[in-house]
Amino acid sequence: MIVRMWHGRVPHEKAAAYRAFLNERAVPDYRGTPGNLGVYVLERAAEDAVHFVTLTYWTDLEAIRAFAGDEVLKAKYYPEDAGFLLEFEPEVVHYEVVGGEADAGPAHVSH
């Protein structure tokens, strides 16, 4: 299993709208890709901005390629991101999962 990690920053006043966008548009896109095993959206408010991290779980690189294209380390952005993000980080980070255990996790998270 591979974890794909992306990071982005948005202004505080846009955080709630971006959270909604991620859950309504990005999460279903990830989940609708064969080979996606799950997705979590993390959020942390800091002085400079609100930081978002998406952790997506994939069966293999071929599944990631189906989602992101041939350049699997290149970050995938949506047209709507331009109205939220302070910058566009060019790459994501992949980690191979080599151990651990998890419960099923929350069925739905809301604020």
Rank of each mutant, 00 (worst) to 15 (best):
D60V: 03
E47I: 10
E87N: 10
A45V: 11
D103M: 12
Y77V: 03
E96C: 01
S110Q: 13
E89V: 10
V39M: 04
T59C: 05
Y40A: 12
R44F: 00
L42R: 08
G99F: 07
I2H: 11
S110G: 11
V39F: 02
H7S: 12
D48R: 13
P28F: 08
I2S: 01
P106R: 08
Y95V: 04
L37H: 01
G32C: 07
A104Y: 07
K76V: 14
L22K: 01
A104F: 10
V53I: 13
A82H: 10
T56M: 02
H108Q: 14
Y30V: 10
P34V: 05
V97T: 09
A68S: 14
E71N: 13
R4S: 11
A45N: 06
E91W: 04
R4V: 05
L55T: 09
H108D: 11
A107W: 12
R44M: 07
E96Y: 05
A104P: 00
T59I: 05
I64P: 00
P34L: 03
V39D: 00
G105H: 06
A66Q: 14
A82K: 14
G38Q: 05
Y30S: 00
G35T: 02
A15V: 02
T56F: 00
K14C: 01
H7D: 04
G99Y: 07
V3D: 00
F21N: 04
V10C: 02
E24C: 03
A107R: 15
I64K: 04
H94C: 09
L22P: 00
P11I: 06
K74L: 11
Y18I: 05
T59Y: 03
G69R: 07
H111M: 12
N23W: 03
Y77S: 06
H7G: 02
V3K: 12
Y30I: 06
E13R: 13
G69P: 05
H7N: 10
P90T: 02
A102P: 00
L85Y: 03
G32W: 07
G83R: 10
Y30R: 01
F88A: 10
V27L: 08
I64M: 12
V93T: 15
E87L: 09
A75H: 14
V93E: 14
L55H: 11
R19A: 12
K74A: 15
V39S: 00
L85R: 03
V3S: 07
D103W: 13
V98W: 08
K74Y: 01
G8Q: 03
E101D: 12
Y57V: 08
D60C: 06
G83Y: 01
A63E: 03
K74G: 05
Y30D: 02
A68G: 09
E24F: 04
G69L: 06
